[in-house]
Design a protein around this nucleic acid. Structure first.
Lengths: 94, 94
DNA sequence: GCCTGTTTTACCGTTTTCAATAAAAAAGCT
DNA sequence: AGCTTTTTTATTGAAAACGGTAAAACAGGC
């Protein structure tokens, strides 16, 4: 269920982390030391192959000095297109 | 290292989820059906006792129709107070 | 009191993260 | 070409997430 969505989510989160790290001129090893997450784990995360935990996300964000929210989605690209503004149709999941 | 920080992070994430859920008048069971995450797991998450994965976070955000970034931190409360704007002192971690 | 709905907690089994380590692959540089 | 740095991939073991289920605690309402 929604595994496609998950893969895309992780891929975009990973690419955002990678971009932020490269913008700061850090290597995986250096970010590993700053964040306390091993370089091998960081590689898997940045390539979207691992579903990291939120505390790991926050530790990476702290190490990169970026808001954690900026890692999970494009901050600027708001305008969340809501399908139906109100009403949760639980009915289709009886 | 920084386990205190982790606990606080999870607690605030959980309370934000709970508030969003209650604002929408949903029960844990209903959110469980909408998000695909069990009600027992949601209870642990909302009370800050579980370190959820980012895909779980995104599924909850989707179910609540809220931006995932809004769950990990106060969107309005930007103005991230950066200690030292530039320079990563790796030296203290030889 | 009783009953009903919601939440919390505990257990079990499966899956997954994560560190540590090592090795292999990729990229840079002289 | 060689050499070095960086990244990727794989393996092992421990810790934790997650679903499912069930039981317990905590509400309100009659």
């Amino acid at each position: 269920m929604a595994k496609d969505q998950d893969i895309k989510q992780l891929a975009s989160v990973g690419s955002r982390i990678r971009k932020a790290r490269e913008d700061r001129g850090l290597t995986l090893h250096e970010l590993a030391r700053l964040s306390g997450i091993s370089a091998s784990a960081l590689s898997l995360i940045e390539t979207g192959k691992r579903d990291l935990r939120v505390t790991s996300l926050c530790r990476i964000a702290d190490a990169l000095r970026i808001a954690a929210g900026d890692l999970v989605e494009d901050r600027a690209a708001a305008a969340t297109p809501v399908a139906s503004p109100k009403g949760y149709d639980l009915g289709d999941y009886r």
